[in-house]
Write a protein that binds this DNA or RNA. Structure first.
Length: 532
DNA sequence: ACCTAGACTTGGAACAATTTTA
DNA sequence: TAAAATTGTTCCAAGTCTAGGT
C-alpha cells in the first residue's frame, strides 16, 4: 500500500487487516468517524510501536481494493459461461462433498442438520445504526477459543490446526448448542453453533411457542380488562405497566430491555424516552423511535382517554412531580424484567414477546377468514387467493414494523413500469375507438375492415392486461419498504397457512418456499378446520 | 430479592441462484 | 440468450428471557 504517496511493505497479518478496510471503500461506513476511529485504533495496534504509518489520512488502500476486485473477476467470468459450464458444476460438487461431513449431527440417534457450521471469519465489525463499536477488528477464531458440546464417550472431532486443542470439550445435555466461543468484539457475548431450523429441537420449540401464543387467546380478555382497570391505579408503577402493556398488545411493540453504553441507542416499549412520544389532543399519540436494528418506528394512533392522560402525565413529570427532560424514561417506575414477572401472574409462562406472536398470528387468521367469507371475484383463481394471502401477510408485516430499505433500482423500475402502463393505456383507448367505428360499420383508421366481436375480444383482453399491470405496479410500490419474510418465518403459526391452503385448494408451495416447507414440516398434517 | 451470564429467537442486508423479460 | 428482476440462502448482529449465583 501507499503511505503519504510512498510504497510501504506490510506483514501478511497487517495486509489482511488493511484489506478488511480497503474493501469497505464504497460503503457508508467510510463516512463515519466512529468507524474510522475504531479501525485506526485496531490497525495501529496491528502495525505495532514506531511504525512508519502514523495516521489513517495518509494511507492509500487502493492497491488492496484493486487486488480484491481483480480477485473476484475470474469467478464472475466462470458464472457467465452459462449452461455449458461443467467447470462450475464440478467446483460446486467438490465444495459440497468437502462440507458434507460438517452439515449433520447425530442427536439421540437421529441425523439432524446443523445450522451454522462455519466459524465466523475475521473482518471488521459492522454494527447497525450508530453503533459505538463499528470498525473494530473482529479477530480470527481458533480451536483454542471454541468450546464444543458432544456426547459422552464419543470421539473428539478434529480440526485443521495442529498443536492446538479445543478450549473445552463438554457433555452438557441441558443445552442445544454444539459449540460456542466468545464474541471477540462484544466480549460479554457469545456466538453459538446450533442445529438448523428443520431439526427436531427447533421444531418442538417452534410448536411450543405457537401453543403458548394460542393459550393467550383464553386469557387475553381478562388481561385486557385488568390493564384497562389499572390505567387509573393509584400505584404509579401499576399504572405505567398497564399503559405499556396496552401498547405492547395494541401495537405489537417489543419489550425493550436496558442497554449498555457501548451499544447502539435503540429502544422498545419499556425503554421509550419522553421525546419518543408526542401527544396531540384529543387522543392521538405519535410514536417516533429507533427500534431493533435501528429501524425507525413511526406511527400515530388513537388511544383511550385514560391512556392519553397517562402518557401526558408520564411525559410531563416523575413520581414526585419533578418535570422530566429529554432523555428521561417515559416509564421510569419499572423495566422489562419487572413487567415479565408481572405477566407470570396473569398467565403461566407469559412474557412480552408472546403478545407479538399472538397478535401477528391471530391477525393473519382473521384476515384470511374474512377473505374467505367475502368470496370476491378475484378469489376465484388460485392467483387471486394467493394475492389475498399476501395482502394479509403484508398487514402483519406492517403491524410488526418489518421494514426493508428501498431496493436500489426501485425508482428506475417504477419509471419503466409507468411507461409500459401508459403504452397499454393508449392501446386500450385505440381499441375503444376501433370498437366505436366497428359498431358504426366504419373501417379502421388504417382502412382495414373491423369486425365488432373481434375488436371487443381484443379490447377485453387488453383491459385485463392493463388491470393486472396496474395491480403489479401498485403492489410493488406498496411493498417497497415492507419485508414479508420475517413474519412468515417467526410470527405466523404455519398451521394457519397450511389449513387455509387446504380449505382453499391452494398448493402450499405457492406460499411456502422449500426452506419454509421443511422448517414447518411439523405443521403439514393439520386439519383444514384449524383456527388459531 | 436482585442481577447478569448464558442461551436461544428474531432481524435486515448481502450474496447467490433462479426465473422472467426484452 | 444476456441482462434484468425476482426469489432464496447465508451471514451475523441484535433482540428476548430465564436460571442460577450472590
Amino acid at each position: 500500500m501507499l503511505y503519504d504517496g510512498v510504497p510501504v511493505d506490510l506483514t501478511p497479518e497487517q495486509e489482511e487487516v488493511a484489506t478488511f478496510f480497503a474493501v469497505m471503500k464504497e460503503t457508508d461506513y467510510m463516512k463515519k468517524d466512529t468507524f474510522l476511529n475504531n479501525f485506526w485504533e485496531g490497525f495501529r495496534e496491528v502495525l505495532g510501536h514506531g511504525h512508519v504509518i502514523k495516521s489513517l489520512d495518509k494511507c492509500d488502500f487502493l492497491p488492496f481494493y484493486n487486488w480484491h476486485m481483480a480477485e473476484r473477476e475470474p469467478k464472475k467470468n466462470l458464472s457467465k459461461e452459462g449452461g455449458a459450464s461443467q467447470e462450475k458444476e464440478k467446483l460446486k460438487k467438490e465444495k459440497d462433498e468437502a462440507e458434507a461431513k460438517y452439515k449433520y449431527a447425530l442427536v439421540d440417534g437421529r441425523q439432524e442438520m446443523v445450522g451454522n457450521f462455519r466459524v465466523e471469519p475475521p473482518g471488521l465489525f459492522r454494527g447497525r445504526g450508530e453503533h459505538p463499536k463499528m470498525g473494530k477488528i473482529k479477530k480470527r477464531i481458533y480451536p483454542r477459543d471454541i468450546t464444543i458440546n458432544i456426547g459422552e464417550g464419543v470421539p473428539i472431532p478434529g480440526h485443521p490446526f495442529t498443536g492446538q486443542q479445543w478450549k473445552e470439550v463438554k457433555h452438557d445435555k441441558s443445552v442445544t448448542w454444539l459449540a460456542f466461543w466468545r464474541d471477540p468484539v462484544n466480549t460479554k457475548e457469545y456466538k453459538y453453533v446450533f442445529l438448523a431450523a428443520t431439526s427436531t429441537w427447533k421444531s418442538e420449540s417452534d410448536l411450543q411457542k405457537y401453543e403458548k401464543a394460542r393459550k393467550l387467546k383464553d386469557f387475553i380478555g381478562g388481561i385486557r380488562d385488568t390493564y384497562t382497570r389499572n390505567w387509573d391505579s393509584r400505584d404509579r408503577a401499576e399504572r405505567q405497566m398497564a399503559t405499556a402493556l396496552y401498547f405492547i398488545d395494541k401495537l405489537a411493540l417489543r419489550a425493550g430491555h436496558e442497554k449498555d453504553e457501548d451499544e447502539a441507542d435503540t429502544v422498545g416499549c419499556c425503554t421509550l424516552k419522553v421525546e419518543n412520544v408526542e401527544c396531540a389532543p384529543p387522543n392521538h399519540i405519535k410514536f417516533d423511535f429507533l427500534g431493533k436494528d435501528s429501524i425507525r418506528y413511526e406511527n400515530t394512533v388513537d388511544v383511550e382517554d385514560k391512556v392519553f392522560k397517562n402518557v401526558e402525565l408520564f411525559k410531563r413529570e416523575n413520581q414526585s412531580g419533578k418535570p422530566k427532560k429529554e432523555g428521561d424514561q417515559l416509564f421510569e417506575c419499572f423495566d422489562a424484567q419487572d413487567l415479565n414477572v408481572r405477566l407470570k401472574d396473569l398467565m403461566e409462562g407469559l412474557s412480552v414477546k408472546v403478545f407479538r406472536t399472538y397478535n401477528a398470528s391471530i391477525t393473519l387468521d382473521r384476515l384470511l377468514a374474512e377473505g374467505e367469507e367475502a368470496a370476491s371475484a378475484e378469489a376465484e383463481t388460485v392467483e387471486g387467493r394467493v394475492a389475498d394471502y399476501n395482502r394479509a401477510n403484508k398487514e402483519v408485516a406492517i403491524l410488526c414494523n418489518h421494514q426493508r430499505s428501498v431496493p436500489k433500482a426501485h425508482e428506475n423500475q417504477m419509471e419503466k413500469l409507468q411507461e409500459k402502463l401508459d403504452a397499454v393505456r393508449q392501446e386500450v383507448k385505440d381499441l375503444q375507438a376501433d370498437l366505436k367505428r366497428a359498431k358504426a360499420g366504419k373501417k379502421g383508421e388504417d382502412g382495414k375492415v373491423l369486425r365488432e366481436e373481434v375488436v371487443a375480444g381484443k379490447l377485453e383482453k387488453k383491459q385485463a392486461q392493463l388491470l393486472k399491470m396496474e395491480i403489479t405496479a401498485k403492489s410493488k410500490e406498496d411493498l417497497k419498504t415492507v419485508a414479508l419474510g420475517t413474519s412468515k418465518i417467526n410470527y405466523l403459526d404455519p398451521r394457519i397457512t397450511v389449513a387455509w391452503c387446504k380449505r382453499n385448494e391452494v398448493p402450499i408451495e405457492k406460499v411456502f418456499n422449500k426452506s419454509l416447507l421443511s422448517k414447518f414440516l411439523w405443521a403439514m398434517d393439520v386439519e383444514p378446520e384449524f383456527r388459531f
